[in-house]
Simulated assay, not measured.
Amino acid sequence: MKLRQATMVDYEQIMAILKDGANQLAERGVNQWQGDYPSPDQIKGDIEKGHAYLAVSQDEQTVGAIAIVPSPDHAYDNLHGEWLNNTDKYVVIHRVAIHSNHAGHGYATKLLNEVITQVKENHSEIDSIRIDTHEDNKAMQHLIDKMGFTKVGELHGVYRPDEISYVYELVVNNE
């Protein structure tokens, strides 16, 4: 698995992957990504700011998409909880999706593992990685737990009114 920084040429492909992800969530009865999030403007912004990446398998297939956003992330300003590492030197993983055509091959695990490895090996200035997911997205919660993240709290109504998201953190450089 490798990450390739996305360009505007990749916009339609990213939108298709995220739409497929939204459909997968809906099929599982998870009310996440079932509105105007993530929006086309948000994805264009991710690409323009250099935050959008494509997940590319060993056989050069594009299997997923992810956004890696540097701090500060103001979505976390109203965290109901407590950070493991009270730092402004963090990155946030957002908008993770593996296309259903590539499901069941462990790509989500490989993708998060690659992000963690890249941060640890190439970004000693980063103290922690943060991520959140919808309270009903059990598959993502399981993956986040499996990758060694610790649940640190909740967000209430940040993405949509009445929506609860669970927030996690992984300390990667604690010097």
Rank of each mutant, 00 (worst) to 15 (best):
D46R: 14
G50Y: 02
S124F: 04
K151L: 07
K44N: 04
E154W: 07
D145L: 09
E125W: 09
A75L: 10
G148C: 08
V56L: 06
P72K: 13
Q58Y: 06
E121C: 09
H51Y: 15
D162K: 11
D46L: 07
E60M: 11
D88C: 06
E121L: 14
N113I: 01
G106Q: 10
D145M: 06
Y159F: 15
H102V: 09
H102E: 08
H80D: 14
D59Q: 15
P70W: 07
S124P: 13
K44L: 12
D136S: 11
D127E: 15
V91G: 00
E135C: 10
I116L: 11
K146R: 12
D77S: 15
E121K: 15
D73Q: 14
S57H: 03
L112G: 01
G153V: 11
K110H: 07
Q118I: 11
R130K: 15
H51M: 11
W83P: 07
N78M: 05
K110R: 14
I131R: 07
A65G: 12
G148T: 09
E154P: 00
N137Q: 06
I47E: 03
W83N: 06
D136R: 13
H74N: 11
D77K: 14
G148I: 09
L84I: 13
N137A: 09
D132F: 00
S128G: 05
D136I: 04
A103T: 11
K151W: 01
R130S: 03
G64C: 04
V91K: 08
A55D: 01
I131C: 03
Q58V: 14
S71P: 02
H99D: 15
N85L: 15
E163K: 10
V152R: 05
V119D: 01
D46A: 12
Q141P: 01
G148S: 05
G45F: 01
D145R: 11
H156I: 12
I144S: 03
D46N: 07
V91E: 00
S165V: 06
D127F: 04
N101P: 00
H80T: 12
A108R: 03
Q141F: 02
A108Q: 03
H94K: 13
N137T: 12
I68K: 12
S57F: 01
D127I: 06
V158T: 12
K138W: 02
V115P: 00
P70S: 14
G153P: 05
I164M: 10
A52K: 10
G153A: 08
E60W: 01
K146V: 02
K110L: 14
E135T: 12
